[in-house]
Design a protein around this nucleic acid. Structure first.
Lengths: 346, 346
DNA sequence: CTGTTAGCGCATTCAT
DNA sequence: ATGAATGCGCTAACAG
């Protein structure tokens, strides 16, 4: 309300600004009684230190930036939630950078670099060139990538185990007796999709099943492409037609399900489907989707912790993620969520 | 990278700090040539004004706070997206306050008040007492509520037309020939739910259909309560059993659908269902859910615009939303999205 | 333990 | 049209 300053508090408690400042910063060199008195004055007058002034004086804003590209907003709410849950327990706040269209993405980076507004940066599902970010990192701004889409870089990151997840999904299908298992891929310029396909082929090979190129098709995470691929798969001669499909994402799986229905076939009776992500909606789709759960919320939490600890290395902490020699790479395991979209092979 | 200051720029361009500052603030009293030269120097050296210093000097952080309670995180991604889309076109940034558990909600408000960190505040789906917010508003911090859950207050707000939406949903059912239409309510301490029920009863009355208390049941937005209510509805003697259900939310509708299936009945053949919200998943549920769409994204946009315009009243603008005499109340209309969960009454 | 003295980087009078 | 001086509110040596 009224703009009390540290000076007012000093006057009101009969001390100097510096002493009050020491109290604010929990300095141990202040007499406990004095400290308590000052705190009381602050409380009763509802004093709160001015943010900008503090930031300017100490050269640190206590703000951590989180940048999330517009297109994926809806998919990453859980990540954001995870981040928020750990940041709110620190004395940092989150500042949210978003570019709702890719074109302006570069500008966002500038805005960040600009102003030294944030003390650290969390980058969620980044699908653009990494150089600008590495540049920021070199410039002294700690950066942590969350859900990198598999891109390789020298930046510390937190990701899900795409390879392992895909492997588990396909193994599940194999265990259900399926032999002709198709794969509908996402955009293969993403490393994460390469990893998923690798998990698919490895699981097949380990089961002694040959990988049939005709069963590995394009999806691009786009409903129409997926639908077309699905139809092509369904149009194969009966003996070569897949009895199960591993989709690179839940969204892809939804499109597959619709295409299968449109073809007059039933899921899972005629064809089993496994997705990847475990979006909230996958529980409500009918049949409920069997899928690989990515631990989004935990990814957010881990990333936030990682960032916070590199910003403020706690005494016991390891060197920190930003030592050029070895950036931290946290890979979280996924889990198979069995629901109703798969059944044993006829 | 290196911490260039306004002083460096001044030196590099052979001018004084003040002139550079004038350039930064687009002062017209600077020689165009000089201005261009300075800008060029800034550009080539990648200079960006320090955020904290600017904020301190002008007493305004150019940060707008957005507070969203943890529980609704997943539901409000679209609102956030809308907010972000307009804020990114201003020279403000968003700072995100979240309390992942309700207990700490009060602390969040303190954090905001504290530090004068934000210049304005956007409050999303606020389900807590409004006094603290009104207090902030009185203290000079512009506040705008988004999706108020219907609570009344002196604060400017942007909401969806809950009454109209419910009315349209039920009218749709009536037009399909239904006469026994049930309503499964959300938590009735929320004004928005009161409004939805009011829309329901009015639509019924206007169609000359009596409102039957036994058809209006508790849902509380909780899956198990909804399931129980649905079963009770289904257990009614055939002649009194509803042929359609209006659910206060999409989530509620999902639970209804599952309960109906569990009872061995079919949607929409045995019973039609309309939801409220139009979450993304409602398109993928089977049968796809007929529902009332809330324009979440637009709500976010409007709220952001409203807030921005109260912070920086543009010349042509209306007085602004925070004039105590008449807070702005923007009500956005909803729309009926017809999909597959409703059919004509037998 | 507490007070003094300088800045942090920029905006803003007021001169020139 | 530009420069000099002052202060925003706080932290951080350095004294005492």
């Amino acid at each position: 309300m009224t703009k009390l300053t540290i000076r007012d508090i000093a006057r009101l408690s009969g001390l100097s600004k510096s002493t009050v400042s020491l109290v604010l910063n929990n300095s141990p060199r202040v007499d406990p009684a004095t400290r308590e008195r000052v705190l009381e004055v602050m409380r009763s007058h509802n004093y709160v230190p001015n943010f900008a002034a503090t930031a300017l004086a100490r050269g640190n804003t206590r703000l951590i930036g989180m940048i999330v590209p517009g297109l994926t907003w809806r998919l990453v709410a859980a990540i954001n939630y995870g981040v928020a849950s750990v940041v709110e327990d620190s004395d940092y706040e989150i500042i949210l950078y978003t570019s709702t269209n890719d074109r302006d993405y570069g500008r966002v980076i500038e805005r960040i670099l600009a102003s030294k507004l944030s003390t650290g940066l969390l980058v969620v599902t980044h699908n653009q060139p990494l150089e600008p970010l590495e540049e920021l990192q070199r410039g002294g701004l700690p950066v942590v990538l969350v859900d990198t889409l598999g891109a390789q870089s020298s930046l510390p990151s937190v990701v899900a185990d795409n390879y392992g997840g895909a492997h588990a999904a396909v193994r599940h299908l194999v265990e259900l007796g399926h032999r002709r298992i198709a794969c509908i891929e996402g955009p293969m310029e993403y490393q994460c999709c390469l990893d998923r396909t690798r998990g698919y082929t490895d699981a097949l090979r380990e089961a002694g099943i040959a990988v049939r190129p005709e069963l590995v098709t394009k999806g691009e995470f786009a409903a129409d492409t997926v639908a077309a691929s699905t139809r092509a798969l369904l149009d194969l001669p009966k003996r070569r037609r897949p009895t199960a499909i591993f989709a690179h994402s839940d969204i892809t799986a939804y499109a597959v399900m619709e295409a299968v229905e449109d073809a007059g076939l039933k899921v899972p009776d005629d064809i089993s489907i496994v997705g990847f992500d475990d979006l909230v909606s996958s529980e409500h789709v009918r049949p409920a989707l069997t899928t690989i759960r990515q631990p989004f919320e935990e990814m957010g939490q881990q990333a936030a912790r990682l960032l916070l600890s590199t910003i403020d290395p706690a005494p016991g902490d390891k060197p920190g993620a930003n030592t050029a020699d070895e950036p931290a790479r946290i890979s979280l395991s996924t889990s198979l969520i069995i629901r109703d979209s798969c059944t044993t092979s006829a």
